[in-house]
Amino acid sequence: MLTTELNIADPDGFYEALIGLHRDLTAEQSRLVNAKLVLLLANHVGDRTVLDEAMALARRGLVPSGEDRAMHAVA
């Protein structure tokens, strides 16, 4: 089960470190750093149920307003 109650000892310190991680990065660089962070943490967690819960929660409430470019359906 995904923990949604506080689980980090020094929350403000962690938040500061997270923001600091992106200092002076371009949007593209930040995206890369975030992606690495997600991958590293996901592998550390390992449990697919927890990961799936976290992914669902992260996207909750978003109305998609972009468009993927890679493919289109064919009949």
Binding site: L32, N34, A35, K36, V38, L39
Partner: peptide
């Protein structure tokens, strides 16, 4: 063939890691 900025970022992140 990444389909958006996020999938490109994840791909490059995977390759760098």
């Amino acid at each position: 063939t990444p389909k958006n900025e996020a999938s490109l970022a994840f791909r490059d992140a995977t390759l760098e890691l």
